[in-house]
Simulated assay, not measured.
Amino acid sequence: MTTKKLLEHNTLSSQVQNYILELIPRENLTAGMAVPSEMQIIQDLGVSRGVVRESYRSLSALGVLEIKSGKVPRIKHFDASVLQLIFGFASATEQVTASQILSVRRWLEIGCAEMAAVNGTEQDFALLQQEMRLIRENFHNTESFVEHDIHFHLVLSQASKNPLFMILLQALHAQLKQSVYAGLEAQKEHLQYEQRIVELHQKICDFVCTRDAENAKKAMMEHFDTAVNSLIEQGSEMNGKSITSV
């Protein structure tokens, strides 16, 4: 009895993709494991080598498969690259708004702070304290400050021990970087703004490292809402123009 499936000729590539996607959970394939070779797919489905390769390339572009020359394709370890492309495209084509990005980021950041306090290790806390020190040292070097600010938040997501927090924040990296720059620009005319920004980071760091989850969450709310309010004020001063740098 043949194992070949009946495929519609005009959708061969997409159907081969679906076949492989359905095969992954059915065979309990996990990251790093090989999927069937080109020859096996050809034999099972009765399609051409070109169709199989096109399907593999499409799945590679989607971040599902890792393809190396001369080797059988393998299940790729999930990363933020595909989501970053999607979020960037959605933002660039105005299918999501700045306020929607801010809303998602707000809850991600609050969740990261709370879970980092609960699940973080001493090594995580040491990394967080190191980034806190570098934030203080590099505040007047905007480029360095922004990088360490972003690292600070990524360390929190890592300490949460929920990989989705890190993946989603990494995927929003470009928007995150823009919002930090915008926040600094919005607050630069405020008296003691440097002290305020550093103090907010320090509060988060201290509460997380002492495993005070409730206050870590509140400190992140305060930090995030302070930045948002500054952006709103900046927008008002721009005669009602929408804020795009978030």
Rank of each mutant, 00 (worst) to 15 (best):
K203N: 11
S99A: 11
V104W: 00
I67T: 12
A213Y: 07
G120N: 03
A182E: 07
Y19S: 13
N10H: 13
F152Y: 15
G183A: 05
H201L: 05
L7A: 07
M220P: 09
F207E: 03
I42T: 11
E199H: 13
L231V: 06
L83Q: 11
V47G: 09
V208E: 08
V180H: 05
G88S: 08
I135G: 04
L108M: 08
E122K: 11
E143H: 00
F152E: 05
V180M: 02
V96N: 02
A227R: 02
R133T: 12
T2I: 01
S58M: 08
E194I: 12
E66N: 14
S179N: 14
H190Y: 11
E131M: 06
E194G: 06
R26F: 02
F125I: 05
A80P: 02
M33H: 13
E109Q: 10
V104Y: 01
V198P: 11
V146F: 04
Q129Y: 01
V180W: 04
P73Q: 00
I197G: 05
M39Y: 07
Y193S: 12
N229V: 00
N18I: 13
S60M: 12
L23T: 09
I243V: 13
E94M: 00
V208T: 10
L7Q: 08
I135F: 00
K76Y: 05
F165R: 07
E237F: 01
V104D: 01
S242T: 08
N119I: 02
D44P: 03
F224Y: 15
E66W: 08
K71P: 10
